[in-house]
Simulated assay, not measured.
Amino acid sequence: MAFSLLAASAWAQEEAPALEGEQVVITGQRPGPGLWKVSKGEHVMYVFGDYSPLPIKMDWRSKEVESIIAKSQEYLPKPSFGIKVGFWGGLKLLPYAIGFKNNPDGAKLIDVLPAETYDRWQVLKAKYIGKNEDIERERPMFAADTLYRSGLEKNGLTTRTGVYDKLDKLVKQYKVKVTPSGFEMELENPGQAIKAFKNSPGADTDCFAKTVERLESDIDAMRVRANAWAVGDMSKIAALNFADREEACNQAVFDNEAFKSNEKLRHAEQSARKAWLANAERALEANGTTFAVLSLSQLLGPKNYLLELQAKGYTVEAPE
């Protein structure tokens, strides 16, 4: 069991302003972007740039990726982090799970959000969600997640891309060794942590406000990024800015009274990054060919992992 609010899919990307006229979301079978190549001598690691949201009706398939996985000795998935409670911890957690998503003391969104943000929420809720009184009792971070996913779906986009599942299937098909770079922390007293979370005021209005802002202004930019990824248009991909939309929502968890004193959790992203980079260096030393995955923000944004490898003397080549 892990908290869905700290799922490994964190660190998604925000969108830059759209290119004028970008409306069509690509469908059908598409190859996605080319691969980054990291090498030292004859040892090579190919890095696939994962991204979401993508077009709902797009079917990803890359013969290049499949051929490289087939000859790889090792696979490095994206770095991840989460909270584990274990079987017995899960049983202890159950009595506190009811109402987990709701604001404490029966508060509604209108009570915890700034008036201007709440008014904007009402417009987007009517557009993308419709009548739903229960969601008005949810914490802003959970209501924001529902709004974001509904907004994407209404615009032909989804975060459930299926790309990662297909990569896992290929890795299993060719029996490639898998080396995860995950950071998973087990709560010593999950019931107490959940109780504290439920009873503590939220620190997630910034998460909510940023979600509203993205859906108000950046839907066209999301189409630009999704279309560019689908056809492997690196010129468009490289021209768009990357910033973490999810950062404010992750921070809403870290700043909550139930978790803010946990130093391991606060440094989870940094720990996962270090683990991935260490695994990458070891794999490049040991294998002729390695296949790895990072999100586009970890390949192009300010958190670019490959710059660290380049600084250590590895040759890094971006796809054209």
Rank of each mutant, 00 (worst) to 15 (best):
237 I>L: 15
307 L>A: 09
213 E>Q: 11
291 F>L: 13
143 A>D: 04
230 A>D: 06
98 I>Y: 09
294 L>R: 08
154 K>E: 04
104 P>A: 13
74 E>T: 15
104 P>K: 14
145 D>S: 10
68 I>C: 02
144 A>P: 01
233 D>Q: 08
275 A>M: 12
188 E>W: 03
98 I>N: 02
283 A>F: 14
219 I>M: 04
108 K>N: 06
173 Q>V: 09
223 R>E: 01
186 E>I: 06
41 G>A: 13
116 E>T: 09
254 F>A: 01
186 E>R: 08
288 G>I: 15
252 A>T: 02
106 G>R: 11
231 V>Y: 08
124 L>H: 02
31 P>E: 06
197 F>Y: 10
45 M>N: 02
88 W>E: 03
40 K>L: 15
131 K>I: 13
179 T>W: 04
220 D>S: 09
213 E>Y: 12
216 E>S: 03
264 K>V: 10
144 A>T: 05
282 R>I: 14
46 Y>H: 14
292 A>T: 13
124 L>G: 00
310 Q>A: 13
75 Y>T: 07
295 S>M: 10
312 K>F: 05
288 G>M: 14
200 S>N: 11
285 E>Y: 10
282 R>D: 08
184 E>F: 12
58 M>P: 00
143 A>N: 02
236 K>H: 04
240 L>A: 11
53 P>M: 00
5 L>E: 13
60 W>T: 09
127 K>M: 05
185 M>H: 06
254 F>E: 00
77 P>T: 04
255 D>F: 06
187 L>V: 05
75 Y>W: 09
96 Y>D: 06
83 I>V: 14
103 N>S: 08
110 I>P: 00
237 I>N: 03
171 V>E: 05
164 Y>H: 09
50 D>K: 03
99 G>R: 11
27 T>R: 09
158 T>H: 03
143 A>Q: 05
190 P>E: 06
132 N>G: 00
154 K>V: 05
238 A>C: 02
155 N>Q: 00
138 E>I: 04
280 A>E: 06
176 V>T: 03
100 F>M: 09
35 L>N: 13
119 D>M: 13
219 I>Y: 01
43 H>F: 10
88 W>A: 07
306 L>T: 03
127 K>L: 08
135 I>R: 04
102 N>L: 10
139 R>C: 07
182 G>R: 09
215 L>I: 02
139 R>K: 15
171 V>P: 00
145 D>E: 10
224 V>L: 15
206 D>A: 14
86 G>I: 06
161 T>H: 03
137 R>G: 00
56 I>M: 06
121 W>H: 03
24 V>H: 07
292 A>Y: 10
297 S>Y: 01
206 D>E: 12
205 T>N: 08
88 W>R: 07
